[in-house]
């Protein structure tokens, strides 16, 4: 109960702050739109190529963009944490009796809300380019995207608390992000690649999300890949949240 209340209070603080910073919002909106507008034309010649199911390239490409968006919005959470650490804000919050989970999750929740709004815009623009919406699939996909963003957000926040300063944090996050993104087939399906690449991808949680997202985008919900995505993301999310809460509870020396 107290955790819910504290999460609500902190969520409010972060969402108000985000709305007060329109520059940030414009940048956030423009990135996925640019992907759609500048990348989609390149895909025109792809239908029919091995690995692309029928139903238009956007059914493949747009879910990838949504996954990318969730991944990026989560893993950038720690930059704010570093700033708050250095301004003494985190310390001020940690000395109050506020729930440690709330201190972690409040800002992540506000990130989820803005991400969902961006997703809606991307889908709307996608429809303009010929994306076909399957509502039920999209709803399930939204839940998966929340899981991924929370997972990455908690990981990024805890990494920020451990590394404490911007250069070390950026090095760790970038070092981890690049292989994860390349091995997930975000922009092009991994199934186009050689065997070793496909095997390696199976160690990557993002890969499962991307594959499930493509299935959901064409309206296939009760499929093995969707179950697999939940089976990978739910436990991982729980573990990382628990770890990150523990980092908040212990010293941030």
């Amino acid at each position: 109960m107290k955790t819910v209340r504290d999460t609500g209070l902190l969520f409010h603080r972060y969402i108000v702050q985000m709305l007060r910073n329109p520059v940030w919002l414009v940048v956030g909106f423009s990135t996925p739109i640019l992907y759609l507008v500048l990348f989609t034309p390149l895909l025109k010649s792809l239908p029919g190529v091995r690995g692309f199911p029928t139903g238009g390239v956007l059914q493949i490409f747009l879910p990838g963009i949504l996954a990318l968006l969730a991944f990026a919005s989560g893993s950038s959470a720690g930059f704010g944490t570093i700033f708050e650490l250095q301004s003494g804000l985190i310390e001020r919050l940690r000395v109050t009796p506020a729930s440690r989970f709330a201190i972690l999750f409040g800002p992540l929740l506000s990130g989820l809300v803005t991400m969902t709004v961006f997703d809606a815009v991307v889908v709307a623009v996608g429809v303009g380019f010929g994306f076909h919406v399957h509502w039920a699939g999209l709803a399930v996909l939204t839940v998966l995207l929340w899981l991924l963003a929370t997972l990455m957000g908690a990981f990024s926040t805890a990494t920020a608390l451990v590394t404490k300063e911007i250069s070390a944090f950026a090095a760790v996050i970038n070092g981890i992000n690049l292989p994860i993104l390349l091995l997930a087939g975000v922009l092009l399906p991994i199934s186009l690649g050689p065997l070793w690449l496909r095997v390696l991808a199976h160690l990557n949680p993002l890969y499962y999300l991307v594959v499930a997202a493509r299935s959901l985008a064409v309206g296939h919900i009760a499929t093995a890949v969707v179950w697999q995505a939940f089976a990978v993301l739910v436990p991982l999310c729980v573990v990382v949240l628990a770890w990150a809460t523990r980092v908040f509870r212990r010293a941030v020396a």
Binding site: D6, V16, S87, T96
Partner: peptide, 20 residues
């Protein structure tokens, strides 16, 4: 370091703190 939220007003800072 203090730790007040620079982007919020003084009153907002105090109200959040009190509620926490």
């Amino acid at each position: 370091l203090g730790g007040a939220d620079a982007m919020a007003t003084g009153a907002e800072n105090l109200v959040l703190q009190g509620r926490l």
